[in-house]
Design a protein around this nucleic acid. Structure first.
Lengths: 190, 190
DNA sequence: ACAATAAGTAATCGAGTGATAACCTGTCAA
DNA sequence: TTGACAGGTTATCACTCGATTACTTATTGT
């Protein structure tokens, strides 16, 4: 297999691994096992674990932003159209199907202890917010959209959809966070 | 010093340490150094690192919830009153002054990989949302309040307030996330 | 005086971690 | 053939981590 192919394959595996454990909670060996290669090879491809994580983070957030930009650029986005707003929200729901992207983003955003991760996180957040502003929405509406995304991320991280029925108030929050998307909670994955 | 006093002292130190690094990114030795005691003593007080983290998490989220409940119970909360809404928002702003509580909460919410942390996180989130529902607000309004809190958490984690001026769109997001509280960004702490 | 108990530390262990070095193996050009 | 290079692996190192054990010190009841 060519080095570039293998590289992409390892990046996909690393995305899955980091989505589960975050930066500190995931070893390079875990990534290697997920990719089916040896641990030193992972390190040699990317230099350091930090470099690998940053690449996974940028790639994941890039895809999320692309999903938004695609929806917004598809046809003229009407900031007053309820229908267009729903379309953008559904873009996020589709990303939930591959929740790894969202979880990697969230783990990046919470690993601000590492200065370089914090810097990339700021750039990623700036990019996403800029994309959302392209809707023409007022700042406060765009902010609420992003905030809702953050809530979805933490609710996924704590596995709320898989634990419905254990707490009345959390059920209420889950239902009005995920809406109809809750009915198909993507049972697989961790 | 009595064991109970020392225990509280270590819990405070652990809150600061975990707020910086999260569960996986913080060693028991880092907690011990922060508290000025030996590492084995930290372990012996709490049994395991996980037990310590769960106690720190529960305590931190408990204090956040208490802050909300105090505001809500202070006087009859009018769900239609803009003024009362501002009072509750300011309760969150005051918590930001001791941002450790918020950061611990966030790290707990993102460490869903560890089943016990995920379970405590769900209980914590359920408790906070239940407290916010006591305002009498519609579910959607309460949800947006919590979502806004999650956005504040990630913006703090990525040190957005300390890096104003580096990205136009992030500046906009920071200003409309923190509002006037941004002027005094609590320059100390990590 | 003297056990007994509480509060803590020093020493250490075994497992896991990121990274390095050395080695192996197939393919292809000369 | 041979040699060079790309694509990997095995072995290993230095270090960190959470946890255990054994020791020390000081107070207190008798």
């Amino acid at each position: 297999m060519s080095a570039d192919e293998r590289r992409e394959l390892v990046l996909d595996a690393a995305t899955r691994a980091f989505a589960r454990g975050g930066y500190h909670g995931t070893s390079t060996d875990a990534v290697a096992k997920e990719a089916g290669v040896s641990q030193p090879y992972v390190v040699r491809i990317f230099g350091t674990k930090l470099d690998l994580f940053l690449e996974v983070l940028d790639r994941s957030v890039g895809r999320i932003r692309d999903a938004f930009e695609t929806v917004i650029a598809e046809r003229p986005f009407d900031p007053d159209s309820e229908e267009d707003a729903i379309r953008l929200g559904e873009a996020y729901n589709e990303l939930m199907a591959d929740r790894d992207l969202l979880q990697v983003m969230m783990h990046g955003f919470s690993a601000g202890q590492v200065p370089e991760i914090a810097a990339h996180s700021r750039a990623c957040m700036a990019g996403i917010f800029a994309a959302v502003l392209e809707t023409g929405w007022p700042e406060e509406v765009a902010r609420d959209f992003v905030a809702h995304g953050m809530l979805i991320n933490v609710m996924l991280s704590m596995h709320a959809p898989e634990h419905l029925g254990e707490s009345a108030s959390l059920d209420v929050l889950a239902r009005c966070t995920f809406g109809e998307a809750l009915e198909v909670p993507a049972p697989g994955a961790s």
